[in-house]
């Protein structure tokens, strides 16, 4: 258990570092995925099976959505050319190192409170109750925020809306295909 935890911890940190070391968009994306998968597997170690598997499921999909964002927003859409993964290289290094040191120092210097209570028999059930009960408002707000983000990113990236497909008065029965003239 402890061994598995340390292996996953090292993999996740090492893959996280790799994100900024590699020179290809695809490698950075999948290094980040490897890091997050290690986090998901670490959740399985503490018997949070549903959350762990959900992290794996969501992170794979998110990284692939990132691949879609590559063609939506990048100057080098396929990500085929080598490129640096950090902007403002030196300052970025200093800032990220300082933040890392600060966080690690915080972990070791905080006097953590002793554990109170026991883990529930069925954490998945407990999670469902929390999401549907006291955390409902938070989840609703986040849900709407994510939906708004999705819609606005697509609207910004696409050059064909429904008027381009169905005509100015939406009169066409069959939408125009990309590149097809009316």
């Amino acid at each position: 258990m402890a061994v598995a935890f340390w292996i996953l911890a090292v993999v996740s940190v090492a893959a996280g570092i790799a994100v900024f070391v590699v020179d290809s968009m695809a490698r950075a994306t999948f290094a980040l995925l490897a890091s997050l998968l290690a986090v998901g597997l670490a959740f399985l170690l503490i018997d949070l099976e549903y959350l762990g598997v959900l992290i794996i499921l969501m992170m794979v999909m998110e990284m692939l959505v990132m691949a879609v964002f590559m063609i939506m927003y990048m100057m080098n859409p396929a990500g085929l050319m080598p490129m640096k993964m950090v902007h403002n290289h030196r300052a970025a290094m200093i800032i990220s190192a300082a933040v890392f040191v600060l966080l690690v120092a915080g972990i070791f210097l905080t006097s953590w409170p002793p554990r109170g209570g026991e883990p529930p028999a069925d954490p998945t059930h407990q999670l469902g109750l929390a999401v549907m009960g006291p955390k409902m408002l938070v989840m609703m707000v986040i849900g709407v925020a994510i939906l708004a983000t999705m819609i606005s990113t697509v609207v910004l990236a696409t050059h064909r809306g429904r008027y381009a497909r169905y005509g100015d008065d939406l009169e066409r029965k069959r939408p125009l295909d990309p590149g097809e003239e009316s």
Partner: peptide, 14 residues
Amino acid sequence: LSAGIVWFNAMEVC
């Protein structure tokens, strides 16, 4: 697995 259906979904998304 207690979350077997989610596991199936996660692997198939891979």
